[in-house]
Write a protein that binds this DNA or RNA. Sequence first.
DNA 1: TTTAGTCGAGGAAGCGCTTCCTTGATGAAG
DNA 2: CTTCATCAAGGAAGCGCTTCCTCGACTAAA
Lengths: 333, 333
Amino acid sequence: MVTLDDVAREAGVSRTTASRAINGKLTVHPERSAAVQRAAEKLGFRPNPAARSLARGRHDSVALIVSETNIEGMTNSFFAMALHGAIREIAKTDQQLVMLLRANDESDEKFLRFLEASHVDGAMVILEAHNTELPRLLAQSDLPVVFLGRPTESTEAPLSYVDSDNIGGSTLAAEALISAGRRRIGVITGPQGMGVSQDRLRGFQQALDAHGLDSSLVAESDFQTAGGAEAMGQLLDQCPDLDGVFVMSDLMAAGAVGALKARGRRVPEDISLVSFDDTVIATTLEPRLTTVRQPLEELGARMVTALAELIAAPAAGPIRDTLPTTLVRRDSV
Amino acid sequence: MVTLDDVAREAGVSRTTASRAINGKLTVHPERSAAVQRAAEKLGFRPNPAARSLARGRHDSVALIVSETNIEGMTNSFFAMALHGAIREIAKTDQQLVMLLRANDESDEKFLRFLEASHVDGAMVILEAHNTELPRLLAQSDLPVVFLGRPTESTEAPLSYVDSDNIGGSTLAAEALISAGRRRIGVITGPQGMGVSQDRLRGFQQALDAHGLDSSLVAESDFQTAGGAEAMGQLLDQCPDLDGVFVMSDLMAAGAVGALKARGRRVPEDISLVSFDDTVIATTLEPRLTTVRQPLEELGARMVTALAELIAAPAAGPIRDTLPTTLVRRDSV
DNA sequence: TTTAGTCGAGGAAGCGCTTCCTTGATGAAG
DNA sequence: CTTCATCAAGGAAGCGCTTCCTCGACTAAA
């Protein structure tokens, strides 16, 4: 850890002057100020917020108060449900949950600096389709990090994560379709770059193969509604007599059902559908979806405890936890 | 601010011993330990986390990394949209956003302690139907607080808030209904205990009165879907030839539309409907809703800047900001 | 009785930073 | 040539807490 004294020494000034320069006080000679800035940059100096807070008597942090009902209400999103679980769990500890925003256009390097400057003991990431690059990024820092959702193993670093049993869940989905008598079964996946898509596809194809069924009807999509509709169209073009489909998210299923209706196919009479997630969409859609439930809130909570363990024993190696998924039977099969 | 030294003095022990007692170390005599606990309790001692962090070399805080796309995806909830705006705004500052959970069953006193122990400079609350008691509670603390949504004035304290122009918005709603030729117009409100319900009802009734129309067809509900359906039924029973309705949230409008359909009324042919919020529901419902848009993300951002102002100048008096609402015309009028 | 060992408690240093106060240098005014 | 401001910079104290180290008192063993 590099302190203000290090910077002062490097710049050849007193700690006092260094402090002033860092804080942009005007009573310091421009030349020296520049020297301090250079030294700070060179050494990678990050003011310790605790020391600062102590000396200044301020905290520079504000709370957002989230009442439990607040987050209970956000039951419709993958992210929100996991957040719910995490917040509840962290409230049991004496830790604070700091929200860090990674802006869409922020450079990796800048974000990493920002993260270090936050002086947190660890970080958690709820992985979604759009942030597949975060694991690689965070592996560069030596901060304990736990992911919700298995990162793809493109990076050598031994990453820690908690995840739901995607393979088991998609096996359940395939078997539900098969035991309903379906034989021409397709699948709509999320981005193939994501670990979750890979796992779910694997489980699904293994189950189909085990029953001697064709498992090659695959359409890649993006976990979103519009993408689901488009992929459904592709699948139908490719195999007009399709009688079953496994869709890897409720959101895509909403699109797929729309596309099916638009082509005059009835669900589940003509074609059976199983999706994944069990969000509110599954119950508001017509027909209500048979879907694989992920224990999102439990995953959020487990993410918190896993991080605590990782912080306590960083050398103990990566934590990798898988929580079971279940099939919720409704009207779409 | 009461420090460990104060506690030690009160208990008649050294600071060292007091520290040990507070932290439950075992090398302190039970009797003295109890004395320290008593003194701490009596004085209301709260360890300064910055000092603790500095001395221990740990921070006891963890980050939840929220990528921008994450929160952009949560566009469906009142809370989430405001959170989005707030997080973006706070990311521009050097402050940290700490999430505090207020559990459903937590006592006022306990929560207040918890809040103080968080050592934040200020707090923000996104007011929703369920947390109407938070303003009263927070008024007891002398922490700067900004609410999103006007608290009811049951408390004498001069509270700060940012809010959308509910009166103006409901006036727009009423006028849209009137200019569509509707003359028997009802309204479904949120809980009358909430400032937002009161304001919207006021604007609505004033507009109706100004046109010489009956403004007494009021049904109180709870901002939720099921409640909206029920209230719609009441209104219809009360006035079978109703030809227009103003519903104070998209969520309730979803219920109301369902109830209308169930009774064979077509929207907008038989009855026109205007709602409030402009969440995604407004575009996914059939028909798409004409609704009053609230600038929720702007409100979230403004809440952040208002809090900063309040922290900078606590004596300057309460901040009360109202941002304009607009009518989004779709297919339900 | 002496020696070693235990246990509870306090002194004091120190975490990394800010800031009050002092000092030396420089230039303007008398 | 002195006297005063003015300015840039440093010394040192201190923010509130933890913890290493030391010390005295008391008990058990020799």
